[in-house]
Design a protein around this nucleic acid. Structure first.
Length: 498
RNA sequence: GGGUGCGUAGCUCAGUCGGUAGAGCAGCGGCCUUUUAAGCCAUUGGUCGAAGGUUCGAAUCCUUCCGCACUCACCA
């Protein structure tokens, strides 16, 4: 076949033919290993010591500038790019002929001498060239001059679907995920340093609980039983506190069968942690320290996000829901009844559902009128009991409120925590209440988990528990405004591949 | 789920009033031993997201569908 048409199909064919030619020439297009002595970045950073020395580098050919009997090319490895100078005289007739068959996207190893070109760019002057992997599917071609990128690979759909291409041609994407790993590592260290035990609990659960959300359902064949992908790991971590572990944490991949948008992906990562003998006040300090630690790690206590300057250096504000309602809406939530809320909504032209209960009114009005005001890190404390079935009643005595806080930054929720309910009688009643709601058709109400109740009946010490939306933390500290940009493979509708 | 926008070559994009599809890069064939968005010459490549409809004629207008983005709603 000698087609020269540049349809994708023909390009694939042409490159397969190149593989055959390369084999005929006696070269192996897919060898097993290669000894790399230097990463590109090391060569660039240590030019003075490496000048005139021989190094071996390996990576992907990102561009090639052929000039007859010699060529320049750029090689990209995990940490950067370095220029190669490849001349027929230096690598020999056969190798140069093989090099002529190479394409952008091929992976090669080069042994050569470190030098500078007359324009001053550090370059490896090849003394031998080894093909390590022949590419047959063309890469998007991205060019760059003086920091300006031309023909950037920008199609978001393609970038998310073919993340490997995105990572190859858009270096800043890789940076985000390197930062993500850095934060993950620091998070582990933060907990480990404080005596926490990292645990793993079931993702496949017979009952789902610990949050209000619709689950994904699957089926176990040999048990012949439906199982749910966890929406939270809370109830399992509490069982561990009952079991005598006093400080546990888990990076919990959770699955919620709900809408997707800029800040929601069907699977996401939460860090949940529980500590015996502490309450939510203790956990507020703990969470504040965590965020400050990460901010410091990332290099600045002032984080710019969505056009706001978030200041992590000051103590986080703490405001009760009652104070916030008073401050922004002049509503006295201690005195308001459901009817008062309905009247208020009518007066203020706020749409509402007459079926809303006290907690739902509070929740909806909070989301609409108060959340947007919470830019600097703010702990909102003391939530209505009806929307917090796992939290202990407020020790100050108002039965309608529980000891719960959420951390808001830049109008988004980052953490949710309780003085965990450990009164088994109260807990049973509240989960029975959730179950009634569920039976009545609220598919986000929590299922009744008898074994969890029995664990609480066995006795759970006073416990503080927190869940942190880890992906959002990553977004905040990497400046990303879409969760898709902090997930390597965000959920997408499946595409038809030929 | 609603609204808005987008979908044209492997990639990035043009395409006027409805008149039968263009560029750059990549590819293919040449020239070229310090280039770097390499250059020069030559050249190929299209189910215009899909299906219907209107029309003598549709990338263009209409309808439906698919995908994505943004946004609102829902959702911790």
């Amino acid at each position: 076949m000698n087609e020269t048409h540049s349809t994708l199909e023909n390009i694939l064919e042409q490159r397969k033919e190149k593989i055959a030619k390369i084999k005929e020439m006696g070269f192996e297009p897919f060898p097993y290993s290669y000894t790399v002595t230097h990463k590109s970045k090391v060569v660039l950073d240590n030019y003075d010591e490496l000048e005139e020395k021989t190094v071996s580098v390996a990576g992907r050919l990102m561009n090639i500038r052929r000039m007859g009997k010699a060529s320049f090319a750029h090689l990209q490895d995990a940490e950067g790019r370095i220029q190669l100078y490849i001349s027929k005289n230096d690598i020999g007739e056969e190798s140069y002929a093989m090099f002529k068959l190479l394409d952008i996207g091929d992976i090669i190893g080069v042994e050569g001498i470190v030098m500078k070109t007359r324009t001053g760019e550090t370059t490896v002057k090849a003394t031998s060239l080894t093909l390590l992997t022949k590419n047959i599917r063309p890469l998007p071609i991205v060019k760059e001059k003086d920091g300006v990128v031309y023909d950037a690979f920008t199609d978001k759909e393609l970038r998310y679907r073919k993340r490997y291409l995105d990572l190859i041609v858009n270096p800043e994407v890789k940076d985000t995920f390197v930062k993500r790993a850095t934060i993950t590592r620091a998070t582990r260290k933060f907990f480990d340093d404080r005596g926490y035990l990292e645990v793993e609990t079931p993702i496949l659960q017979a009952l789902y609980g610990g949050a209000n959300a619709r689950p994904f359902v699957t089926h176990h064949n040999s048990l012949d039983q439906d199982l749910y992908l966890r929406i939270a790991d809370e109830l399992y971590l509490k069982r561990l506190i009952v079991g005598g572990f006093e400080k546990v944490y888990e990076f919990s991949r959770n699955f919620r069968n709900e809408g997707m948008d800029r800040s929601h992906n069907p699977e996401f990562t939460a860090i949940e942690f529980y500590e015996a003998y502490v309450d939510y006040f203790y956990m507020m300090d703990f969470v504040e320290e965590y965020f400050k630690t990460i901010a410091e790690l990332m290099g600045s206590m002032i984080v710019e996000y969505r056009g706001e300057k978030i200041d992590f250096s000051k103590p986080f504000e703490r405001k009760s829901m009652a104070d916030l309602f008073d401050e922004y809406l002049k509503i006295d939530i201690a005195a308001f009844t459901e009817k008062d809320f309905a009247d208020w909504c009518q007066k203020n032209k706020k749409e509402f559902d007459p079926k809303w209960n006290y907690g739902q009114f509070l929740d909806k009005l909070f989301d609409e009128y108060i959340e947007p005001k919470l830019i600097q890190p703010t702990f909102v404390i003391d939530y209505p009991k009806v929307i917090s079935p796992l939290a202990k009643v407020d020790r100050k005595g108002d039965e309608r409120f529980v000891e719960r806080f959420e951390l808001f930054i830049c109008s988004s929720e980052y953490a949710n925590a309780f003085s965990e309910l450990n009164d088994p009688i109260d807990q049973r009643e509240r989960l029975e209440g959730q179950d009634r709601l569920r039976v009545e058709g609220d598919d986000e109400a929590q299922a009744f988990d008898e074994d969890f109740i029995q664990a609480i009946e066995t006795g759970m010490p006073p416990t503080g528990g927190v869940g942190i939306g880890f992906d959002r933390v990553i977004m905040l500290f990497t400046g990303q405004t879409s969760i898709k940009d902090v997930l390597l493979f965000p959920a997408m509708r499946s595409e038809k591949l030929s």
